[in-house]
């Protein structure tokens, strides 16, 4: 165990904002210093590595040669296709070339965040650089998608340590996300869910409901259609999460969340309520559209609540 080489990780950056790297270094368990000193060998990551230019590229090539088929490729950001890929240049060449080159001999690929997984903000309409998620470019390797803008730190290190500890990829849903973190909606485990069920809502910012921690559904919360671990793992060592801090979820781990209407628009369709339904059974949940499912759901849960009340001894 002691002499076994640490698994090399090559971390590439395309069009992105580096929020994924920033999130990664926030990990509290494990601490990121323990990850990079004792668990993996982060041989290339242009945000943190000491070497630059030719020496940085040489470090990348050396790991690819020495650990052919054994290294993990982690991708933050995505490649643009317009302008021959020259909207993102690394080493004088289009990023997409580096991405394909490093993917070729990778054992597995991790798509960090919503950029690599779905396209994220630069791919929002009209996607001027024609930025695409990495699965459009890497088609012959398993890709673990860890969406979110950014993903939660402990989810990121959790995915990596799972792979190192159990020697396999985590179980993925149909969209390629680890079921352990993306199998349920934020709404399913939200601490304000009882207020939803009771029909107690924040109607306006800073009203009495906001001060009492009522449900944010009416001011646009996307928790009912967003698959992520924010309400369970929470953020920054479990300190809080967006809903607890009073703002609705903006759905940042969902495919195309930028183009699903305003963050303050009320969801009008929430398909298939009930925590027993996982992401695959429901399929890609769609925010927006028309319908009164939400009202029906609220009514049903309110009735259930009354029934439960009645059942109490």
């Amino acid at each position: 165990m002691e002499t076994k080489p640490r698994t090399p990780v090559l971390w590439l950056h395309g069009l992105e904002c580096t929020c994924c790297s920033e999130s990664f270094i926030r990990s509290a368990h494990p601490l990121v210093k323990d990850v990079v000193l004792s668990m993996i060998s982060l041989d290339y990551d242009d945000t943190l590595m000491a070497a630059a230019g030719h020496q940085a590229e040489a470090a990348l090539e050396e790991t690819m040669r020495k650990y052919k088929g054994e290294y993990i490729l982690a991708v933050e950001g995505n490649p643009p296709l317009n302008e021959d890929g020259m909207f993102c240049i690394v080493g004088g060449k289009p990023f997409i070339e580096q991405l394909r080159h490093v993917a070729k001999d990778a054992k597995a690929v991790i798509a960090w965040g919503s950029c690599a997984s779905w396209g994220c903000v630069q791919a929002a309409r009209p996607n001027p650089t024609q930025a695409v998620p990495i699965h459009k470019v890497i088609t012959d390797k398993p890709i673990v998608k860890v969406p979110g803008c950014p993903p939660i730190a402990e989810v990121m290190t959790g995915v990596i340590t799972y792979m190192l500890t159990f020697g396999k990829l985590p179980e993925l849903d149909r969209q390629g996300r680890p079921k352990m973190f993306y199998g349920q909606r934020i709404h399913d485990k939200c601490y304000r869910r009882p207020h939803f069920d009771a029909g107690q809502f924040v109607e306006h910012w800073d009203d009495e409901g906001a001060r009492k921690g009522y449900c944010l559904y009416k001011v646009g919360c996307k928790g009912p259609t967003s698959y992520n671990a924010c309400s369970t793992v929470r953020w920054n060592e479990g300190t809080s999460f967006p809903i607890q801090a009073g703002h609705g979820c903006i759905g940042c781990s969902e495919d195309g969340f930028w183009d699903k209407g305003s963050f303050y628009e009320r969801l009008t369709t929430i398909p298939q309520f009930g925590i027993e339904k996982n992401a695959d059974e429901i399929g890609a949940a769609v925010a927006g559209g028309v319908g009164a499912a939400i009202a029906a759901h609220a009514a049903v849960t309110a009735i259930k609540r009354l029934q439960n009340k009645g059942d109490r001894p």
Binding site: W235, N236, T239, S240, A245, G246
Partner: peptide
């Protein structure tokens, strides 16, 4: 950064 988490719900990218 947990000060962001209290007031903005998360970090990076608080609300």
């Amino acid at each position: 950064v947990k000060i962001h988490t209290i007031f903005g719900g998360k970090n990076p990218h608080p609300n």
